[in-house]
């Protein structure tokens, strides 16, 4: 599909190349946020078999923390004034991610742990209820108006070839790559191996002396942290004016990504995220004008779901997901 569009773009001359480049860069930036969200969702699913519907709420909460830390109390920037402002802001964002990770830890302990062994959808319903609770509190904390995050990149842009890319978009992609590498490394560490073992066979892992509870908590903490990172980057220029009461809905847009990649595949989550981002961006850029008016209003928004359906028809467990072995 990409190749076809490229050929099409070249046939249309410079203007078409620009359009294609911009749609691609914007799709990659969007996909990076989806990938971050999907990473967290998949990590939690892999370790605990729970699809976390409170992910968006956690993302908004994390973005709020970042906004509060960076613009209201300037923490930890006020103590490290000798550092450049960019570093100060990154520190604030990191602290926000850490706080959200702790929130994830607490949530797992209080609401998810007691549900071990209960029917799958009761646990999913709990996360939906958690979403209501966290979102209500976050909305109240955010207050009347959206809160800009005060990031150092502002509205700065750089030209990469024919594409005009915002610096914050570059940062998003960078963070996604760092997160992916970090998680890949984590899975090689002691705890990472334990998590993989738990995901593979909980009882066998416990027999080996792995505390499944601790693994669950860890997965939720990392997942919540990734959600916060995604929330922060989805609240930056040009995507948004700041964290607001609609930030939480962003996570629902990432759901097709985890299905396309496969619910239990880390690399699948990232690939799925970029596929969704590009699909949305290309659909928005090319299915426009009178020729495409039969597609109605806002077709780009359902494009990820259509891609998801096509993938599922071909591969019912996603591109990289493990096929469940069904026994009688």
């Amino acid at each position: 599909m990409t190749l076809d569009l490229l050929v099409f773009a070249q046939a249309g001359g410079q203007e078409a190349v620009d359009k294609f480049a911009n749609a691609t860069s914007s799709g990659i930036a969007l996909g990076a946020i989806y990938a971050l969200l999907a990473l967290g969702l998949v990590l939690i699913y892999k370790a605990t078999q729970v699809l976390n519907f409170a992910h968006g709420a956690l993302a908004a909460l994390g973005a709020f923390f970042a906004a509060y830390l960076a613009t209201v109390i300037n923490f930890p920037g006020r103590y490290v004034t000798f550092l450049p402002t960019t570093v100060q802001w990154i520190l604030s964002a990191l602290v926000a991610v850490l706080i959200t990770a702790v929130v994830g830890l607490v949530l797992e302990r209080l609401a998810i742990r007691p549900m071990i062994g209960e029917p799958l959808f009761s646990v999913v319903m709990i996360t939906i209820a958690l979403d209501i609770v966290i979102r209500t509190i976050t909305d109240d904390l955010i207050g009347t108006n959206p809160r800009p995050l005060g990031d150092p990149w502002g509205a700065d842009v750089v030209n990469i070839g024919p594409a005009i890319v915002a610096k914050s978009e570059l940062a998003t992609v960078a963070v996604t790559i760092i997160a992916l590498v970090g998680i890949a490394l984590f899975f090689r560490s002691r705890y990472g191996v334990a998590m993989r073992a738990t995901a593979f066979d909980q009882e066998a892992a416990m027999a080996q002396g792995i505390s499944a509870g601790r693994i669950f908590a860890l997965a939720w903490a990392i997942g919540a942290g990734l959600a916060a990172a995604a929330g922060i980057f989805s609240s930056l220029f040009p995507r948004s004016i700041g964290v607001s009461n609609t930030t939480a809905f962003f996570a629902f847009r990432a759901l097709p990504a985890i299905v396309i990649g496969g619910l239990d595949s880390i690399s699948g989550a990232v690939v799925g995220g970029f596929i969704v981002g590009l699909a949305e961006s290309y659909a928005g850029a090319y299915f426009i004008g009178d020729t495409w008016s039969f597609l109605g209003l806002g077709f780009a928004g359902v494009m990820p779901y259509i891609v998801m359906l096509i993938v599922l028809i071909v591969r019912p467990y996603g591109l990289f997901g493990t096929e469940e072995i069904r026994r009688v």
Binding site: N145, R147, P148, S168, I241
Partner: peptide, 15 residues
């Protein structure tokens, strides 16, 4: 319009 557009830390404030 929302005043957050020009609030402290907003990327689009000047514009």
């Amino acid at each position: 319009y929302n005043p957050a557009f020009i609030a402290e830390g907003s990327a689009i404030a000047d514009a």
